[in-house]
Simulated scan of single mutants.
Amino acid sequence: MRSTNTKFRTLGSSLIGTTLMVGGTALMMAACSNVAPLPKEFSQDTLPMSIGVPSGHKVVLETTATGVLNYECRATPAGPFAWTLVSPQANLLDRTGKDVVAYSGPPAKWTHIDGSSVVGNQIAVATNGEFNLPLQLARAEPSMGTGALQNVSFIQRIKTKGGVEKTKPCGTANGGEKVTLPYQADYIFWRPV
């Protein structure tokens, strides 16, 4: 009789535990269904309209860049001297952390590890703080090679940090001087739907 009671108690405890677990899971799922999903990194909702990608396009690649920008103090066509971008150098990692694209220029060129590449021409910018590169929208020229960057139509530069020289003067006294600045940014690649 004792062994039968022990079996029923064990079975009863197991049944109650399972019921509580299933019920608790159902309550948690119901509670979570009312929580809005996290926004995707490439959401246009939080970006200035000036750098928004026109409708009819979809994201094909999201990357995060860490690199440097090489500047030279030069006279501008309007006359005054200014820090002028000579070349960017950055490695772009996809959302899994894999190094997938090299960024170089000028002109601005992104080359994927699969051999495909794209050149972009800036069409819009939006300020992002005094010492950060502006946010940017570039229109892609027809891509070279087949692969991940094939048929890319736009490249967005968002979430910029650093990359702007504001502390060192640039004028006739130091014309030709060079400076290298670190920067970070996300580059989002788009193609037509």
Rank of each mutant, 00 (worst) to 15 (best):
I51S: 00
A102P: 05
A102C: 09
E62L: 14
L92I: 00
A108W: 00
P107R: 08
T111A: 07
D99I: 10
I51Q: 00
A108M: 11
V53H: 02
T111C: 02
K98N: 12
F81P: 01
N70Y: 08
R74T: 11
K98T: 15
T64E: 12
D94I: 06
T84F: 07
P48H: 09
K98F: 11
V86T: 09
H57M: 13
V119A: 08
D114E: 08
L93G: 07
H112E: 05
H57I: 06
N121G: 13
V59F: 02
S50P: 04
S104G: 11
L93E: 09
T46N: 14
V53Y: 10
I51Y: 02
T76D: 07
S104E: 07
S50N: 12
Q89W: 11
L61K: 01
G56W: 06
V101P: 00
D94W: 04
K58E: 14
L92D: 01
D99N: 15
L47Y: 05
T63N: 02
E72K: 09
V59K: 02
I113M: 13
L92V: 04
D114K: 03
G67D: 01
L47Q: 10
D99K: 13
V118R: 00
T64G: 14
V101D: 00
F81D: 03
P80R: 05
E72I: 10
A102L: 15
F81A: 05
Y103C: 05
F81M: 07
N121D: 15
E72S: 10
